[in-house]
Design a protein around this nucleic acid. Structure first.
Lengths: 211, 211
DNA sequence: AGTTTTTTTAAACAAACATTTAAAATCTTG
DNA sequence: CAAGATTTTAAATGTTTGTTTAAAAAAACT
């Protein structure tokens, strides 16, 4: 009654549209992407995007929420892990690095669309915010009290970790253009930088340990 | 023969259009901005944008080049200063921070438009690249040879400094939204983070000095 | 002054856009 | 197979886009 099968495609039409929309929106943003772009990428008629999703806007919201959930879920899981702060820092950086290496346009997309419509982020963060902050904050402040790390807020620590990794990919188009890098050269540079960042952040944080 | 004076505006019409275009393009990007947006912001007839600049594209290129030049010039000047590496790091970070605090949309704009049209960056960087790299690279490698700083390439050092400051503003809409920050709270947080970054980078780099 | 050039305007232009319609094609089910 | 529901299509919708036109207004010049 509901589901129909396509002759020459393993995916449902709805899923094909979403996958095409994901790709096109990630690449061009909401303003830069057209309904025809998406239809063409999905190999379907233009009217179908409005048959399955009622509008370009609604289709966008659907995939935006999926993408932001994907973006935050992995981070959130690591922040909740029962591991040492040192391990947690390394794992979070490694995770974000892997995620963005596979999806370089992810942050640009999210950051741009949040700027275009800040309220959109409102619903998403209800749980995310609580999880993120409390879990890490408790652990950080405990270590601060014990004197094992410098006095620092979890917000600054989080910003430090995230900035150094995320900006690598936010600025990838400019970096590769300015330094005339190939894709491989960038990958190598980024990987080396990631290790450097782990080193720098942990060294800075746990500096009071040595001496 | 050439110049005409406006009755009720101190600026020339051409300059008013450029100023409006600067504001609208920075806020919405090329795709999100319309000719009517710009005309309205400038308080002029729509046809005038095409009378002074031949097209939306040409107007965009004009202000894009001005903006990128503004963006790079200050950095370049500091990188060429005859000061110690330690001073140079602090000055560069302070400069970028000030510049982006006054123009928070600057990097988003440049990064997005470079991604949309990578060739556009080509002309700009001819001199910039040379300046940037050689000036800093020489100084860094000398300090490395002297053992005063960790072994590091100027590219990684540059990336470290820039990432930590620039991402603060790239992610400003998301940060303020997620942590429910007011403009003032963000300003304070960003300022504290900037100082933390200077501390972290210099501590990491010059670590071999103490002990 | 009057004439020419420059600037500004209202109106219209074609192209691109998101969206809708109505009919055709396909699948589902009794 | 045949009736009904679902999916897909081609075509057209009205709106917004960037751009042009032709006339009006202002300024410059002799």
């Amino acid at each position: 009654m509901k589901k129909a099968m396509n002759c020459f495609s393993s995916q449902s039409t709805e899923e094909r549209i979403k996958e095409a929309a994901r790709q096109v929106f990630l690449e061009k943003g909401f303003d830069g992407a057209t309904s025809r772009d998406i239809a063409e990428a999905a190999g379907i008629n233009i009217a179908l995007t409005n048959y399955y999703f009622r509008s370009k806007e609604k289709l966008f919201v659907t995939i935006f929420e999926e993408i932001t959930e994907f973006f935050f879920t992995g981070m959130s899981a690591i922040l909740s892990k029962p591991i040492s702060l040192r391990e947690k820092i390394a794992e979070l950086i490694e995770h974000d690095f892997r995620m963005l290496r596979e999806n370089p346009r992810l942050i640009n997309f999210i950051l741009n669309e949040v700027h275009r419509n800040p309220e959109r982020m409102g619903k998403m963060i209800g749980l995310q915010k609580v999880l993120h902050h409390s879990m890490l904050d408790e652990q950080v402040q405990q270590e601060v009290r014990q004197g094992t790390i410098r006095p620092i807020s979890s917000m600054h620590l989080m910003t430090m970790m995230v900035s150094n990794i995320h900006f690598l990919f936010v600025s990838k188009p400019m970096t590769t253009q300015i330094w005339n890098m190939t894709e491989d050269e960038f990958t190598k540079f980024a990987d080396a930088h990631k290790n450097l960042v782990i080193d720098m952040v942990t060294n800075y944080l746990f500096e009071s340990e040595k001496a």
